[in-house]
Structure formats: C-alpha cells, structure tokens
Design a binder for these strands. Structure first.
Length: 180
DNA sequence: GCCAACGTTGGC
DNA sequence: GCCAACGTTGGC
C-alpha cells in the first residue's frame, strides 16, 4: 500500500520524519571551572576531545540525552574564575550516551540511582574548535545587546549546560574577533 | 569568604 | 504530597 507523503507526515506528527541532525545545528554553553578542567586542558587532550561526564542535574541531563547532537556548537565558559570568560568553542563529537562513571562504585561520580539497564545520567563528547585569543568576558557579554539576555547572565542561573541562540553564538564570535 | 538561589532529601 | 533542612553552585 502506498501512503501519500502528506498523509504520512500528518500521522508522524509535527516533527515529521526528518532526523534531528538533518534539521539545524544547535548551540550550547558548557560551564567548567578552569581549576578543574580548562580550555587548555581540552586543547591538550588526545584528539583535542574529551567526554563531558559528571553532570548531575536533570534539566542538563535532558539536554545531553535528548537534544545535544554531533556537530552542534559549544561555547566553553570558565566559571568560578578570574576573569570569567568564554574561553573558546568546541563541537559536539558524540551525541548523548550513558555516563558510565555513574556505574563505578569507587568513582567520584558514582550514583546508585543509575545502572546500565536504566541509566540516570548521560554525557557527550566535545572536540576543541577554537581557543579564543581574545576571550569574551562576562562583562562584555552583559554590555552587548545581542548577549545581554543569555541564560548565563540571568540571576541565579546555575544550569551547567545551557542552550544558546544562533544570534548569541554569532555575537560571541564577533566579540572574540573571530568567524564561527 | 559571603550568601542568594537553587535542587535534592527525607521526615511526616 | 508538603516543606524544612541541607548541600551545592557560582557571582560578588
């Protein structure tokens, strides 16, 4: 039986049958304390790539598990630092997969709520794109009309993984004096 | 170092 | 299911 494409699209719902990575690149901001893991640590990692484990917040977990896809752009933010900066950019090298560190009893990220049959926590891999030679400071972001509304700058925003709009992505690169 | 803003936990 | 206590984040 031949089903007209329009009928199939309607039955498939508003998302249709396009997979996510055929649609649009998305942009994110990942926070990291540079004392723990900095953009230089990423640069010096094998293949300039690292896994992003240890996220233990459900909202961030949902992003990691459901939305963050290979090829997405990542702004690498240095939190709890002097100065606080967007230090560079990265690309998602591997979409969400279970955070296996949560399964390891002797690991600092162990969480008995999570097991391989039903993982509670997820992670992605990211690969360095650019170390900004002129990092973008938090103050610059606050002063820029395209960036002032960023989730990062909302008072009390503790989310360690945040969505970034394309406008913000472009504006951050403009402030860094770079092309994305 | 302080502390506001959260998210989580656990007693009830 | 409520909510107080607690722990953490992260800017200041």
């Amino acid at each position: 039986m031949i089903v007209p494409a329009a009928a199939f699209a309607a039955s498939a719902g508003p998302v249709s049958f396009l997979s996510r990575d055929q649609v649009m690149p998305q942009y994110w901001l990942f926070k990291s304390e540079p004392d723990v893991f900095s953009i230089e640590d990423l640069r010096d990692s094998p293949g300039k790539t690292t896994s992003w484990e240890g996220v233990r917040n459900y909202q961030a977990r949902n992003f990691l598990r459901d939305q963050i896809k290979r090829g997405d752009g990542v702004l690498f933010y240095h939190s709890n630092a002097k100065p606080m900066i967007i230090a560079g950019s990265a690309s998602v090298a591997k979409s969400g997969y279970p955070d296996h560190f949560a399964f390891q009893q002797d690991h600092k990220y162990f969480d008995p709520k999570s097991d391989p049959a039903n993982p509670a926590w997820y992670m992605v891999d990211i690969r360095l794109r650019q170390v900004f030679s002129n990092p973008v400071t938090r103050d610059q972001l606050a002063d820029d009309p395209d960036c002032a509304q960023m989730m990062l700058l909302q008072r009390g925003s503790r989310l360690s993984i945040q969505p970034v709009t394309e406008t913000e992505w472009l504006a951050v690169h403009r402030l860094a004096g770079l092309k994305p």
